[in-house]
Amino acid sequence: MSENEAAELFNRELDVLLRDGRPPFPSHDEGLIRAAGVLAAADFSADSRVREELRARLTGENEGGGLLVLVAEAVNAAAFKVLFAAACLLLLVTQVVRQPARAPLPPAPTASLPASVKDAAPARPALPPPPRVFIAGPAAARPSAGGQIFASIPMAAPRGEPLESFPIAAAGPGSPIVTAAAREVKVDGGTDLVMETDGAVLIIERRVTSHEELFERRVI
């Protein structure tokens, strides 16, 4: 018997075995069909650890699975595909129709500065006798309290005294600003120092602050 004939006979008997659950009798090769019976009887599915959980997830026996099924069905539905294509087409057409004819842009405005900043500035009211301002140097830096990384450096209180003349000083080489007046202004939580110059008003604020306002705290 050739191998082809033996294989054909065996496969016929194997189909009977798989269909009926038992080998045909008599068999042309008892040992071989018995081995096939062992293979046919081997069932590994009891080893699976996902069978129930997977079934629940895929068939919608729990909430998440239901959603998955709905999404899968929706995506697969032919109606969904048609609707999706129609929506894309509608969006495209809408965009094309809404595109207005582009009008020519107006000419760009030409920026210009006043001839003189001094001429453009409003008239100032009469000033009180201007004090002269000194800012004392800070006290010696104190060691950090409480083991903190940063410590406050106390700022000296601003004080003033009348100026002898106006303006108090001529602008130095290259500096266009001349201090005209300076005064303290009480504000909530501290004192502002207002300094007026020939063409601008500068305000130096003095108030209580915290480390967090000045520094970013990082953990190394």
């Binding site: 191998e3 294989a7 054909e8 065996f10 496969n11 194997l14 071989l32 081995a35 062992v38 293979l39």
Partner: peptide
């Protein structure tokens, strides 16, 4: 059919 026949024979030997 031939592949199955040969494979079962081989597994018969191993088993």
């Amino acid at each position: 059919g031939i592949i199955i026949y040969r494979a079962v024979k081989r597994m018969q030997e191993l088993l």
